[in-house]
Every structure is written in structure tokens, then in C-alpha cells.
Design a protein around this nucleic acid. Structure first.
Lengths: 192, 192
DNA sequence: TATTATAACTAATGGTATTAGTTTATTAAA
DNA sequence: TTTAATAAACTAATACCATTAGTTATAATA
């Protein structure tokens, strides 16, 4: 019973499709096999294990996220770029919950390959801040601050921690945070 | 074969012990039963299901976190209190990874009881900012900003996103972020 | 044409949550 | 004191989940 024409690419594409549609960050091999109309163990002819599959979807998610960010900041500089970036970042996370959750649930501890894959995601912010002519250490700090704010907001909202003042506009909260960040960054520049 | 003296409290205590020791945010009923020297289904005489157990551990985690925060800000006001709070928040998350991860992986969407349980966690920050005499809407915004920064930093560091500039002190990054927040807050007060 | 590699399969193991039904000791009632 | 009810353990079973071992059929190659 050879060859229904299954390939690693088809498996990844189906997993991505499920994750994008459902908002879940994972898919079981059982469910994946069902959709592809094969038996679960057949998938192992193409992938090593679930971790392997997760890596492939992670790669896809990073690519899509980075492309989205680059499009958002094209032709922009400094504060304008940061504001556009922040908005794009938030919108991507909300419109691609599964992919964003996957990215933010991948611990890069052990695996050097995972770290490699995540680099472009860090570079977008570093690139963004390099317009300001900060020295290396300041760049490292402020890049962390921006990432923390952006992810922190999404994480809290996603978890449901914004229900408490649910009538208060969450977009305005984010704008306040970004303005706060920009003011801090400008103050930092004044000290150089 | 009645009564090895198992109670809901003992089960919760064992789950908490495992979560605190391992750093994982969950424990399987299988593992829990093994530790308590009973068979897995026996646990159902005391708990409803895993969600029920998770709620109980969540309640414990919130209590411990809030108590830690209150101790940290006792006798402090304004900026001093915010700095002490931020440091305590970070230290708690690092020293209680399992409990912190549990708190930050509990989606409060559907369940009103979960929302209730999480309220004290929001109130600590609101309480902290109430020293400044902000009006309600500003309080709601700035409370979100502080939460986002605090959690965002921990989340990014925990995930491994700080390896990129691993020689740059992460404590200094956090201090910059908090100073940035305080400056923003003071600027807000200037506009009232 | 015979061989080999591959891509599917079945069967099995072990971990996970959960439910149904059984046993038994203790507690409460008769 | 005997009896009945209850509660806390149990076994057995179902249903997912990942993974491995071993089987089979077919397509490509020697």
C-alpha cells in the first residue's frame, strides 16, 4: 500500500492550517492523521516526532511574523516606525493566536537550533532601535523593554486580566505604554 | 478497604509540593496518586477532576503571591513601593516558577470563579498606584502598563529570549523599564 | 527479472483523564 | 447488638495521546 503522496511539507501545511484556524498552538498526531486520511504511525515516515513537527511550524510562524513586521515598518523611521511596529505586533498576535502562542510557548533553553530560529524575531526590534544611534548596551536594554511591553500586554489581555476594567479601552492603554517607552528612549538619548 | 486517611487537603498539599519543587505548573493524577500511594481513580473520591485540583492550587498560588507582595510594600509609598513591588514580583516568579507559570497559564475567559480568585492579584497593583491620586481611567491604564512590563520581562527571560545579549545584566534592564514607567507616571500626574 | 528501499499498514506499550461498578470498613440508625 | 447506609478505597474499562516494532506492497533500481 505504497504512497498516498504524503510529504513532510504536506504534513506541516496541514498542521499550520489547523493552528491558524483553531487558535490552538498544537495539533495532535491523531487529529493530524485523521485530517490527512492516514493512520497516526504513518506520519513517522516523514517526521521524527512531535517536537520535530513543532519546530517546523515554529519556523513558519517566525517567518510570517517577521514578514508582517517588516511590511509594517517599511519606509518608516524612529518613533513612527516603533508605533507602526507595535500596532502590527499586537494585530498579528490577535489575528494569529495559535501561531503567536506557539512562538511564546517555545522555551529556547536547551536547543541551539531553536535559538537560531528565533534570532530574526529579535533582530526586527534591534533593527528598529538602531535608528537611534544607541550604544550596544543601551540597545540591548531598550530592546528588552520594548519586547516586554508588547508581549506583556498581549499576554495579560489574552489571559483575561483586562476584564477588571473591561470598559477601559485597551488600545489606549497600549498607546500610553508605547508613548512612555518613547519618552524614556528620548531621555536616554539626552544622556549620551 | 476503607480510609487511608486521604483528604482533599492532603491531595492539594502534595500537588503544591510537587509544583513548587519541580517548577512545572501541573501534575498528572497518575503521578499524584503514585506519590500518595493510592490508585488514580481513588483521587476522584476527593476532587471533581483535574480542573478542580488546578483551581485549588491556583488559589494557593495567588494567596502566596499576594502575601509576598504585601510584605514587600509594607511601610512603603509611591516610587519606593513600586520599586520594592517590582523586585518582589520578579523574585517570586523566579523562586516559584511552577506557581507563577500556573497563574500565568490560567485563562480567565469563561469561568467567573477563576476571575474572582484572580482579583486580589489585580488589587495589589491598583492599591500601589492609588497613592498617586490618579483618576479612575488613568489608574486602569497605568495598572495595565505596570503589569505588562513586569510579566513581559519574566516571560521573555523565562522563554530564553534574553540569551541574545546574555552578558547584558537583566536586572539593569528591569530597572530601566521601571524608571521609564515611573517617569511616565509622573508626567501623567503633571497633566492633571 | 530480482533486489532494495520506501511508504503505508497493524499491533503493541505506556502515559493521560475519566467513569462505572465492586468491595469493605466504619459510622449511624434500628 | 445487630443492621443498614455511607464513604473510601479498589478493579475494569474507555478513550485519547505519542511512540516503536514489525509487516506488506509497490515503485525504482540493479
Amino acid at each position: 500500500m505504497r504512497s498516498k503522496g504524503l510529504t513532510k511539507e504536506i504534513i506541516i501545511a496541514e498542521a499550520v492550517m489547523y493552528i491558524e484556524e483553531s487558535g490552538h498552538s498544537t495539533i495532535s498526531l491523531h487529529e493530524l492523521a485523521r485530517r490527512l486520511e492516514v493512520k497516526t504511525p504513518s506520519l513517522y515516515n516523514h517526521i521524527k516526532n512531535t517536537k520535530d513537527l513543532q519546530h517546523e511550524v515554529f519556523r513558519y510562524a517566525i517567518d510570517k511574523f517577521v514578514a508582517n513586521q517588516n511590511a509594517a515598518i517599511a519606509g518608516r523611521k524612529k518613533d513612527d516606525a516603533i508605533r507602526a511596529f507595535s500596532e502590527a505586533y499586537y494585530n498579528f498576535a490577535m489575528e494569529n493566536k495559535g501561531l503567536y502562542r506557539l512562538i511564546m510557548s517555545m522555551p529556547l533553553d536547551n536547543d541551539d537550533m531553536e535559538k537560531e530560529m528565533a534570532v530574526p524575531l529579535l533582530e526586527t526590534v534591534i533593527n528598529l532601535l538602531s535608528d537611534y544611534g544607541l550604544h550596544d548596551e543601551a540597545l540591548a536594554h531598550w530592546q528588552r523593554v520594548l519586547r516586554a511591553i508588547l508581549h506583556g500586554f498581549i499576554s495579560q489581555e489574552d489571559l483575561g486580566y483586562f476584564y477588571y476594567y473591561k470598559d477601559v479601552d485597551s488600545k489606549k492603554s497600549r498607546e500610553i505604554a508605547i508613548q512612555c517607552f518613547l519618552n524614556g528612549l528620548h531621555a536616554e538619548l539626552g544622556t549620551i
